[in-house]
């Protein structure tokens, strides 16, 4: 063996070595090419569309400049969608974070049956938004759901018809969305709490801090990275929220629960306003990237060195 390899001329072994050198890149290339085309190429395509006068089909013969964006921001449905996104995301993020943190802190008190409760809090995350939507749509439906139940229990004056009221319908979507995601936020906080260095807490106890003070002054401030992660994940989900709205209200009553994602779909494929649809998608992407890019940058940049 030794004889063989050492006397083999370099020219013979070199081509094999270079093939081995190239192999990793050959393996990676298809995936990377697909991502480049299907993600970044398509983003550019959509960006071009948003400056074109496309209606039913992509049409690059007429250029309208920023006209689609101007029309977009003057369109009442888009304004409704933005308002709804603001209401929805603020409530969704705040309530999920609050419930998630509270449940995590409570569960972290050496609770008997934690192993039983935790999966219950978390299982909605495994469901499709469509399933969640169906469940809550009918449960909140005045005809058969909660209102009907309360009245049949003798509370005749009970009224809960938010899902049918233009002003309030968006809040029912918040309820369903919080139901689906808060358990997951709980899991994130729980992992964070379990990672807190015991000795810090012991030191605080020796310093005479009360349980409440320890949580308020030491543990919750330590959860900063979890708050950040939760915020990013929830904001990302909120901006993309589409399925749940479709399943629960399909944007109704009227256009009361339109979100940007719904707007994009309805204008592009329903109303043949492809240019405006593309513009709305670009705005959505900019919103998400405004949140994600700095986050990824700090997460990855901080790790590297």
């Amino acid at each position: 063996m030794a004889e063989l390899t050492t006397t083999a001329p370099r020219a013979v072994t070199n081509p094999r070595a270079t093939l081995q050198d190239l192999l990793p890149k050959i393996v990676l290339a298809p995936s990377f090419a697909l991502i480049l085309i299907f993600v970044y190429g398509f983003i550019i395509f959509t960006a071009f569309l948003s400056f074109s006068g496309s209606k039913l089909l992509p049409d690059f013969s007429t250029w309208v400049g920023l006209n689609n964006y101007v029309r977009l921001f003057n369109h009442p449905n888009w304004i409704t969608a933005l308002k709804n996104l603001a209401i929805f995301s603020v409530l969704y993020i705040v309530i999920c974070s609050f419930i998630g943190l509270a449940l995590a802190i409570f569960l972290d008190q050496k609770i008997r049956g934690e192993g039983f409760l935790r999966p219950i809090y978390l299982y909605p995350m495994a469901l499709s938004f469509i399933v969640t939507g169906v469940a809550w749509k009918w449960f909140l439906d005045p005809g058969i759901g909660l209102e009907h139940v309360m009245q049949s229990w003798g509370w005749e004056s009970f009224s809960f018809r938010w899902i049918k009221e233009g002003q309030m319908a968006i809040y029912t979507i918040v309820i369903a969305a919080v139901w689906q995601s808060s358990g997951f936020v709980m899991a994130m906080f729980l992992a964070g709490l379990r990672g807190v260095d015991n000795e810090i807490i012991k030191a605080a106890q020796i310093d005479g801090a009360s349980t409440l003070t320890i949580y308020r002054r030491i543990i919750i401030p330590l959860m900063r990275p979890v708050f950040l992660s939760a915020f990013v994940v929830l904001a990302h989900l909120a901006i993309k929220s589409y399925d749940l709205v479709v399943a629960m209200t399909d944007g109704g009553p009227g256009t009361a629960t339109w979100t940007p994602a719904l707007f994009m779909q309805k204008f592009t494929f329903g109303r043949n306003e492809m240019g405006m649809g593309a513009a709305s998608a670009i705005i959505m992407m900019m919103m998400i990237f405004a949140i994600i890019v700095p986050y990824l940058y700090s997460e990855l940049g901080g790790k590297k060195k």
Binding site: F45, P58, I239, K240, G277, A281, M284, M285
Partner: peptide, 13 residues
């Protein structure tokens, strides 16, 4: 980064 794009942006192409 491709994980986080809103898929609406790739629907038409």
């Amino acid at each position: 980064l491709a994980c986080f794009i809103p898929f609406q942006i790739v629907l038409i192409p």
